[in-house]
Design a protein around this nucleic acid. Structure first.
Ligand SMILES: [Mn+2]
Ligand SMILES: [Mn+2]
Ligand SMILES: [Zn+2]
Ligand SMILES: [Zn+2]
Lengths: 166, 166
DNA sequence: ACCTAGGTGATAATTATTACCATCTAGTTA
DNA sequence: TAACTAGATGGTAATAATTATCACCTAGGT
């Protein structure tokens, strides 16, 4: 099993490429290309540390002193919607607890946030023989599968049909 | 690759066993066995839905009308500390965003919450050929590795040494 | 039957996020 | 190019989860 920290050097070219395609991708997603959105995606692409909205706000303000924190929050969610960013904390809004402390994994509906347990024995063995990685000593691991439940799939379909008629 | 939803029938016996050992495990962890803690772990072991603190609060109140919501929050964190519960949302306190939208995984320090990217090509292929599981249509997946970074390991050591002298 | 470290309840404080709305502007149209 | 408008933004209020505080209580030990 090959577990390795991502090479930081690759980020430069990756960010440049993503940035050059950003305007086009916004249009494809039906979004206006605003200076605020450009500034936010730039900062995000330059960050390797999975930043919070307030950190991005601080960085963006150096160039755009008038930007609003609300815009940063909104924009980050919008970028995730069109696939230009990824929310690391899919379930961040409320703490969720589990009585099952055996190693296991989760499928979660990205819309209604329901979570179900799943078993993937292969993944449980993933850390065996790898006590540490770089500066991290590894404790345990869990796979998070993003999904759409039946109910939310139907709701999604209905909403699209609705939009199509108007 | 065997991906399967966890069998719900197993929860009954599992919960009974965990509950019967709970008092002893509290003592081992240096915790008092209070009626509140018992009520909370009971509710948690009976839940298959990864509940939030407020849901547990509501359920516990049916038997303990005087319990406080603060106690529920505190107790759930305490239970996680001694390994009697698991927090599904390790990074729930603030939303974190990622500019890297390529499939990749994360190591995170459970104390300082720093997050680093890692690559595990095998895991990226996990969902291939499995478009759905039960009522969930699968979108993507990401492995979360809980860890302790070097800095926090040292801090932990120092704290233990401190406690030992007093 | 005490004692006391630690636990609890009630409530205030904090903090991230969302809602709201007046104003502005990107991108389209004539 | 000028006018138009759907959608974006800024400023601020509202919301909601969690944590802090502190007087009182009690589990577990003597
Ligand atoms: Mn679970
Ligand atoms: Mn990442
Ligand atoms: Zn759903
Ligand atoms: Zn750390």
């Amino acid at each position: 099993m090959e577990l390795q920290l991502v090479n930081e050097r690759r980020r430069g070219p990756y960010a440049a490429k993503r940035l050059s395609e950003f305007a086009e991708r916004c249009r494809k997603g039906g979004l206006a290309v605003t200076p605020q959105r450009l500034a936010i995606i730039k900062v995000l692409l330059d960050s390797g540390d999975h930043p919070r909205a307030d950190a991005i706000f601080a960085a963006v303000r150096l160039q755009h002193p008038h930007i609003s924190l609300a815009t940063v929050h909104r924009t980050l969610e919008t970028l995730c919607d069109i696939g230009e960013a990824r929310k690391v904390t899919l379930l961040h809004d409320v703490a969720r607890y589990d009585g099952n402390v055996e190693p296991h994994h989760h499928v979660l509906c990205v819309r209604c946030k329901r979570v179900h347990d799943i078993e993937i024995p292969e993944v449980d063995k993933l850390l065996e023989g790898t006590p540490s990685l770089g500066e991290f000593s590894l404790l345990r691991c869990s796979l998070e599968i993003a999904a759409l439940c039946k109910r939310c799939q139907l709701a999604e379909k209905r909403r699209r049909a609705q939009r199509h008629t108007t």
